[in-house]
């Protein structure tokens, strides 16, 4: 017992010595600390996924996190804002570069409406996104929409800070090799 404690202490001391400024383990590349493979597009580095690994730029996770998979809507509206159009321009570019997968646009509403109306309203929102993407050249057959009404709130408080995040249309991509 006592011996193993001493050994453990030695390992900890060794590890802390190594962490002082040197890349002994080759974390940033094995040959002299070269970083050139990890600058990513535009020198911005790679985006890490939840597991700490760089995201594959052709993956749905990259689409969701980097391109932006959702657009938001004002109260009781389905017209696309300027910000939403910018996001959808990015989506259409990426989706055209990554053909083959299925694209589902999920429409949502906040809780400040009746159930039936919110299904119809969220359908309008999803359809606005689909129509925009089709106008940008995506084939209609690749796109489907699901209106969720107020059934799937992302945020659960009952004020505008949550409502604005719930009034959304989310573009969900599936069936890619990078999935």
């Amino acid at each position: 017992m006592r011996l193993s404690h001493i050994l453990l202490l030695g390992v900890v001391l060794l590890a802390s010595a190594c962490s002082r400024g040197e890349d002994a383990g080759g974390l940033f590349g094995g040959s002299g600390g070269s970083l050139d493979d990890n600058f990513g597009p535009g020198g911005a580095g790679s985006v890490l996924g939840p597991d700490g690994r760089p995201l594959n730029p052709a993956s749905p996770a990259y689409f969701a996190q980097v391109i932006g998979d959702r657009v938001l809507f004002p109260v009781d509206q389905h017209q696309l804002t300027a910000e939403a159009r910018t996001t959808l321009d990015g989506q259409s570019t990426w989706l055209l570069q990554n053909p083959g997968g299925q694209i589902t646009i999920e429409g949502h509403a906040d809780e400040q409406g009746t159930r039936d109306y919110n299904i119809a309203l969220s359908n309008r929102r999803a359809a606005a996104v689909r129509d925009y993407l089709v106008a940008k050249g995506l084939p209609d057959a690749r796109l489907s929409i699901i209106p969720f009404g107020k059934e799937r709130p992302l945020e659960v408080c009952s004020n505008e800070s949550c409502y604005q995040k719930n009034r959304r249309a989310v573009t969900v991509v599936t069936g890619f090799p990078g999935a």
């Binding site: 389905h78 299904i119 359908n123 359809a127 129509d131």
Partner: peptide, 9 residues
């Protein structure tokens, strides 16, 4: 009932 066709209900 209600049916959705495109953006319309």
């Amino acid at each position: 009932l209600s049916l959705n066709e495109g953006a319309n209900t």
